[in-house]
Amino acid sequence: MKSVKIIKISAGNFSFWYGAMKALSGISMDIYENAVTGIIGPSGCGKSTFLRSINRMNDLIRGSRADGAMLLDGKNIFEPDVDVVELRRRVGMVFQRSNPFPKTIFDNVAYGLRVNGIKDRNYIAAKVEKSLKDAALWGEVKDRLRQNAFELSGGQQQRLCIARALAVEPEVLLMDEPASALDPTATLKVEELIHELKKKYAIIIVTHNMQQAARISDYTAFFMMGELVEYDQTTKIFTNPSKKITEEYITGRFG
């Protein structure tokens, strides 16, 4: 990681409101290409809000408002001329609870391609296979692509959701506690997968699990009460945090 660090996303004095409630205040941080950035913090600290600001998923919530800059490749995504649909294609998201569509495994992965106007069947089939392979799911589902996605186990469903997000070739992958509803084996698989995926993507992961953050992320940001308390390389945050409150949180004294 000592090589040249390319900044993929840059938040500059970024604040966010839900109606009158200020959820984020003045966040400034750079997120790097080909790295996993972990976001930790107690419940309600704004870490999910921050994550969901990067693909403007919070636009769906009425009365929400953003201020400051959120730059993706140097371009503020909250500017009026930004095409949100295009933004969301570039910034993929995996949710806390696996949420496959009530469709077949194949159609789940193909969905993102189809809504983006791709009709070539051969291309779609090849892309579905590749995405499932990248998500380490192909071996388990290759003989039952026409089955309903709900028939998969929880861990498989989550990897299917990752495959679905990969299929549209995003540049950034947002993960909102992707393993919190999974058993340890499935969690391990998802973590291994994240480790593989960072070769191609900038990954931002929100997690409640300290060990997980320490294991998989290169950088860690600690959020509290809507503010960014500390942001540094993961080893630094977990071994020698510069703020006392970070240390207290990491060692489990609160939260």
């Binding site: 769906l60 998201m93 949710f95 496959p100 009530p102 993102g112 809504v115 549209v168």
Partner: peptide, 15 residues
């Protein structure tokens, strides 16, 4: 219909 379905769809760049 669960919100999670819509979120998943929108997050994939569907209108």
């Amino acid at each position: 219909v669960p919100v999670s379905f819509c979120e998943a769809s929108l997050a994939l760049g569907a209108s």
